[in-house]
């Protein structure tokens, strides 16, 4: 048990040192890299390691007679989570989400320290000592709190109320609801039922399964499947149309959406927000192809009221591309990202 706790304590100590180094900029933030694609699980795994590490540290310090009081354990753990979220995870997490996470962490700490009466008493003890103020030092602290707490609260209030020159927060709707149907080049398409006419097998018949089987594989990078190379001159059916869609994409779209479809094209950083990142699981992977068809056709200017604040400069591509070209470019986007369009059957 002691050996296990020692290992855990070592992990905890190394973790704290690494984080401290990153905060004061002595250690580069990419020393232990967060790998894109694995980041969500990596963050959870790291937090699990830290919890194990802190348990070990607490155990070891306790066995050496240097136990950290429960009150400070709670405060330190919560502070650690806040610092971790701010300095470890990159790109930076917006304040609104950090505030949510911070609140949940605070609740978690409360649940931990008050899970049983003994722990709760231990946690409350320093607070009670100050309130009771039986010693001179505690009396002094009590007066200090009496002065500092109102100043602190006043400071927060002032900070919240003082007029700021920052741009206001925007609650941007990432996926505004589409209309039931859309008219492109004189033809009406019902978004619920329309299909991409180029999602076809070698016999030219609509075949979702066939096209799904030929998209690139996701993993460390995105890899073409064997015998599923759209740039093979003999490619037919779905793969041929993917190639044609790719050509259209690189002639028209990649300047903004990037050659890796991650929204980081040549012109991308001239805009705020930068163009949509199709490799993110929250964009095209969540939508029907018809939704993309509607957005590509109508562009930023065609966003509905719900799309406030209409922060999109995408041109209405129906003015530049044919219907067939739009469908093909959509085909390519799904193929390249390795995502499947949403279907209901």
């Amino acid at each position: 048990m002691k050996a296990l706790m020692s290992v855990a304590a070592l992990i905890g100590a190394v973790g704290i040192l690494l984080l401290a180094g990153m905060i004061v900029d002595i250690i580069p933030s990419n020393t232990v890299r967060l790998v894109e694609g694995y980041m969500p699980m990596q963050v959870l795994f790291e937090l699990t390691l830290f919890v194990a590490g802190f348990t070990g540290l607490s155990y070891m310090l306790g066995s050496m007679g240097m136990a950290v009081p429960r009150f400070w354990q709670g405060i330190l753990f919560w502070s650690f989570i806040l610092l971790y979220l701010k300095y470890r995870v990159y790109p930076p997490i917006p304040f609104s989400v950090r505030a949510m996470y911070g609140t949940v962490s605070l609740i978690a700490v409360f649940m931990w320290v008050s899970a049983n009466e003994e722990d709760w008493k231990k946690f409350k003890q320093p607070i009670m000592n100050i309130l009771d103020a039986q010693t001179g030092a505690n009396k002094l602290l009590r007066y200090a709190y009496l002065v500092l707490l109102p100043i602190l609260i006043g400071g927060f209030s002032y900070n919240a109320m003082v007029p700021k020159s920052e741009e206001p927060i925007e609650l941007r709707t990432v996926h505004p609801a589409p209309p039931a149907s859309t008219k492109v080049h004189g033809k009406t398409y019902t978004l619920q039922t329309s299909q991409n006419p180029y999602r076809v097998n070698l016999e030219g018949k609509f075949d979702q399964e066939y096209s799904n089987a030929n998209i690139v594989e996701q993993g460390m990078g995105r890899l073409m499947k064997p015998n599923a190379n759209p740039w093979d001159k003999d490619a037919q059916g779905y793969l041929k149309y993917v190639r044609e869609g790719g050509e259209i994409f690189f002639q028209n779209c990649h300047f903004c959406h990037g050659d890796n479809l991650n929204g980081r094209g040549l012109h991308a950083f001239a805009f705020n927000p930068i163009p949509a990142n199709f490799t993110d699981p929250g964009t095209i992977a969540q939508l029907q192809e018809t939704f993309i068809f509607w957005r590509v056709s109508k562009g930023g200017i065609g966003l509905p009221n719900e799309g406030f604040p209409w922060a999109s400069v995408m041109p209405p591509w129906e003015q530049h591309l044919t219907v067939d070209e739009i469908w093909k470019v959509i085909l390519f986007e799904y193929w390249h990202t390795g995502y499947y369009p949403r279907t209901w059957d």
């Binding site: 980041m39 969500p40 917006p94 304040f95 609104s96 609650l171």
Partner: peptide, 29 residues
């Protein structure tokens, strides 16, 4: 509870490098 549509200032949006976050984006779906 991770939101898919994140509340943020334009400055935060720029710092994040786009609407999609590689961690939050995955938790948000």
């Amino acid at each position: 509870i991770t939101p898919h549509t994140i509340v943020m200032t334009p400055a935060e949006l720029k710092a994040m490098g786009g609407q999609q976050h590689p961690v939050l984006g995955n938790y948000g779906v």
